[in-house]
Nucleic acid binder design. Structure first.
Length: 484
RNA sequence: GGGCCGUUAGCUCAGUCGGUAGAGCAUCGGCCUUUUAAGCCGAGGGUCGCAGGUUCGAUCCCUGCACGGCUCACCA
């Protein structure tokens, strides 16, 4: 901490002490505001310039700007709803006026006073009572440019929220998106469930998990990488239309599109297929978008995106060929390997499925801007998906891509326990990581079921025009700062 | 983990072709009772991310490290 920083801190602590001695102790002061900025701004929008009212109001908030003029002055007070100007006069405030120099930008105060409009037309409250409710002991970031330092914005999100108005908008938008998602599913008759975050066997995907230890059980647990297997157990148990909307944890690299903990929606519906899920996905995204944006034509990072249904739908093979310019026989591992090499993709030690996905990720996905379903993947890419009846080398799977990002992934779930065991055996190298409980649930009979996963953070990014996943997660993961 | 880039006052940013740094906001003092990025006068505030090296001299050049951004790898 530099000397200036200490100096500012000390100055403000002294002001706090002075206030406590000469007025009240802020941390014991009771003040419950009866009014909000937005309410007053609305109610008095048409008040004539230069008019006083005898309306008494009580409002609380943070001082975000001050303009003092000797024996009078103005504060801009910001509460949760907006901001309003406070007018302070020596005659109106009496002794308290002398204490004004103990207040700083950032202090949280309560104001009692009357509503009026200045001669320049600014709605204001003339203060008759003024109470310090919490002292801001550190200087706020600059009022005009806000907080620009990206690292500080993520590490001290409270400051980011305080001084960068669009940040709060984004996170309020996020809440709306999640709320709209829930209400869509609830209205469709789905039941929200909660399954374990701590799992003995991390299943449903193959990412590296985070590990933790349960002392009483003396057992290692993993933070879930997906809720999928538990949700299918519930479908077996007769909860046939369910969803879960919560965190997953993956111990992988971090970048603009990946945070170690992220929010996933998974939906399962019995007696449905991936085709039904395609419709559900379209409806869900369209309804949420309409509700949030009021239109299906949105802008993401300068690009026009048109979410008006129906969306383009193309098979995996056709996508490789028509979008990626890669004509390949999906059956021929040699050919796939050769083409991957030609495209300068890593091939060493990679399976056919991995090669195919790399081809898709590299050649196709970066070219997809408009919403596009890619469907009918090679069966090796999805061991939990059901094969196509007329072409068993493919599975009933689709992914939705928007703005070069994967947003959703869905299958007709494989419900044949014998085939499921075989296919998992091929993929899961460590047999203790084979979820026998899940296989047993299938053995009791999982109805034909369709499952869907939607990356909520990515959806929020697109609908809030945010370039990085860290812009839509309140406290994104950061490397701890080394103590000096 | 690799590559590229960044880190200067509390905040937002200049700058030094190598001679220990400036502005605006904020802060402190003075004037000002309808201002609104209030105004005017004055003042204080910096181990230029950290540690080494080269040099008479480094904030600037070199190396290493830390943190961050982008990107590649990883992530069925």
């Amino acid at each position: 901490m530099s000397s200036l920083e200490e100096q500012l801190f000390e100055q403000r602590k002294n002001k706090l002490k002075e206030w406590t001695v000469k007025a009240e102790n802020p941390y014991w002061t009771q003040f419950t505001p009866r009014n909000t900025a937005i309410e007053l701004q609305g109610e008095y929008a048409r008040l004539e310039k230069g008019t006083k009212t005898d309306k008494n109001v009580e409002i609380a908030g943070r001082i975000i700007a001050e303009r003092k003029h000797g024996k009078a002055g103005f504060f801009d007070l910001k509460d949760a709803t907006g901001s309003i100007q406070i007018y302070l006069r020596a005659d109106g405030l009496g002794e308290k006026y002398e204490l004004l120099h103990h207040l700083d930008l950032g202090d949280i105060i309560g104001v009692k006073g009357t509503v009026f409009k200045t001669r320049t037309g600014q709605l204001s409250i003339e203060a008759r009572g003024l109470y310090l409710l919490a002292k801001c002991l550190r200087p706020l970031p600059e009022k005009w440019h806000g907080l620009q330092d990206i690292e500080l914005r993520y590490r001290q999100r409270f400051l980011d929220l305080l001084v960068n108005p669009q940040v709060k908008d984004t996170f309020l938008r996020r809440v709306e998106i999640i709320r709209a998602t829930r209400s869509y599913l609830d209205e469709k008759g789905f039941t929200e469930v909660e399954t374990p975050m701590m799992q003995l066997i991390p299943g449903g995907a193959t990412a590296r998990p985070f590990m933790t230890h349960h002392h009483a059980l003396n057992e290692n647990f993993y933070l879930r990488i997906a809720p999928e297997l538990y949700l299918k157990k519930l479908v077996t148990g007769g909860l046939e239309n369910i969803y879960e909307l919560n965190k997953n944890f993956r111990n992988e690299g971090m970048d603009r599109f990946h945070n170690p903990e992220f929010t996933m929606l998974e939906v399962y519906s019995a007696y449905k297929t991936y085709r039904d899920m395609m419709n559900l996905t379209t409806q869900l995204v369209c309804q949420v978008t309409k509700q949030i944006k009021g239109t299906w034509k949105i802008k993401y990072q300068g690009q026009e995106i048109n979410l008006t249904p129906p969306w383009q739908c193309i098979t995996f093979q056709a996508a490789l060929e028509e979008i990626g310019g890669v004509k390949v026989d999906l059956e021929s591992e040699e050919e796939i390997r050769r083409i991957a090499q030609e495209k300068e993709l890593p091939v060493e030690g990679l399976s056919k499925a991995q090669l195919l996905e790399h081809l898709l990720d590299r050649q196709v996905v970066p070219r997809i801007i408009q919403p596009t379903f890619i469907m009918d993947y090679p069966y090796e890419t999805a061991p939990l998906a059901k094969r196509k009846k007329d072409n068993p080398s493919l599975v009933e799977r689709f992914e939705l891509f928007v703005a070069t990002q994967e947003v959703a992934n869905a299958y007709s779930e494989l419900n044949n326990p014998i085939e499921q065991r075989e296919r998992l055996n091929k993929v899961v190298k460590d047999k203790t990581m084979l979820d026998e409980d899940f296989l047993q649930a299938l053995e009791y009979g999982l109805p034909p079921t369709a499952g869907l996963g939607v990356g909520i953070d990515r959806l929020v990014m697109i609908l809030t025009d945010s370039p990085s996943i860290r812009d839509v997660i309140l406290f994104p993961q950061m490397r701890p700062r080394n103590p000096e």
